[in-house]
Computed example of a mutant assay.
Amino acid sequence: MKSINASDSVFYFSINAPYKQCEVLYAPSMPDVVMLSESGLSVQVPTNRLRQFVTSNGIKGRFRMVIDANKKIKSFERLG
């Protein structure tokens, strides 16, 4: 993981979605999804950041996304 700077924004998400709901992450017409962070903010997340965590059961866990001051994603990782 890259270091988190004071100017970075950090968002936490809890996801528990069965595989059937995750199928939309592979649709070419769906490059991003809007997710509600644990702090209550709606955040746009590229679907390719989520796909790596999809299993045959779907996607489950708590995730952290770090965005730099230029609104670029520095990291998106599963915490548990």
Rank of each mutant, 00 (worst) to 15 (best):
A6P: 00
F76R: 02
R51P: 00
S9D: 15
S39P: 04
M65T: 06
S29V: 13
G58P: 05
R49Q: 09
G80C: 10
Y19N: 01
R49S: 11
R51S: 05
F53E: 15
C22P: 05
C22Q: 03
S37G: 09
Q44I: 15
S37A: 10
M65L: 11
Q21A: 14
D8H: 01
D32F: 12
Y19H: 00
G58H: 01
A17E: 11
D32K: 07
G61A: 14
Q44G: 14
A69H: 11
P28L: 12
P28Q: 12
Y12V: 07
P31Q: 10
Y26M: 02
K74M: 06
V54L: 04
V66P: 04
G80D: 15
V24T: 10
V54E: 12
V34A: 09
Q21V: 12
N16P: 02
V33W: 00
Y12H: 10
V10G: 03
L79T: 05
N70P: 00
Q21G: 06
S7N: 03
P31K: 14
A69K: 07
Q44F: 10
V10Y: 02
E77D: 11
L50H: 04
P28W: 02
R51A: 10
P46G: 12
K2W: 05
E77M: 12
F63T: 10
K20N: 05
A17F: 06
